Amino acid sequence: MAKKENITDVTPEIIEGWKKQYGEVFALEVAVDPEKYEPGTVTKDLDDDIPKITGYLRKPDRKVMNYAVVTLPKSISGAGKAVVKDCWLGGDERLLTDEAYNLAAALQAIELVDFYQSRLKKV
């Protein structure tokens, strides 16, 4: 199987094409420079004014969801990395190849996996 070519120069027209093909498309942004962790001061959201790199993901399909659900209890980062890899449409390849950026992307991408409350009762 040939490696899918990465689209790095993502335009609004390309995004519209992805939306037609995949439905929802998500921009995954990671800050270029790391923040040092200080207890009680975790930044809630990414500041729009700081440099960031961006990748684009589609909604996970059933195969990706199944893998993520099975992997999640053992490794949230492993499940998220699978989502990033399998749902990748294009963008800055550092989100795939650089371990620090990939981990940050994975922890955000896991939010694309929907979980529903459920139960099984004997009746």
Rank of each mutant, 00 (worst) to 15 (best):
K52F: 01
P73A: 12
W88V: 05
T97S: 12
R94A: 11
V70H: 09
E111Y: 01
K74R: 11
L72D: 05
T11P: 08
D9Q: 15
D86F: 06
D47H: 04
R58H: 07
T41D: 05
E29N: 11
G91M: 02
A100L: 10
E38M: 07
P39A: 14
N66F: 02
A31G: 07
T11Q: 09
T43Q: 12
D45W: 00
E24I: 07
A68Q: 03
G23M: 13
K3A: 14
P60T: 09
C87M: 02
M1T: 14
L72I: 10
K20S: 11
Q108A: 03
E111Q: 03
Y116H: 13
G90W: 08
F115Q: 02
P60A: 09
A68H: 04
V64T: 15
I14A: 14
G17N: 15
V42M: 01
Q117P: 01
W18R: 07
D98P: 00
I76W: 03
V113S: 03
R119E: 11
G23L: 13
G80R: 06
G40Y: 04
P73T: 13
N66P: 00
D49Y: 02
L57G: 04
A104F: 00
K59Y: 04
Y101H: 15
Q21C: 11
G40M: 05
D48W: 00
L107K: 10
C87H: 01
A27L: 03
T41R: 05
L120Y: 15
A82S: 12
A104K: 08
I7M: 14
E5T: 15
V64L: 10
K44Y: 02
I7K: 14
V113F: 01
Y101C: 12
E13H: 12
P39M: 02
K85D: 07
A109K: 05
L57R: 04
L103Y: 04
I53T: 07
A105R: 07
F115A: 07
K20P: 00
G55Y: 00
V84S: 06
A27G: 04
D33P: 03
G78A: 12
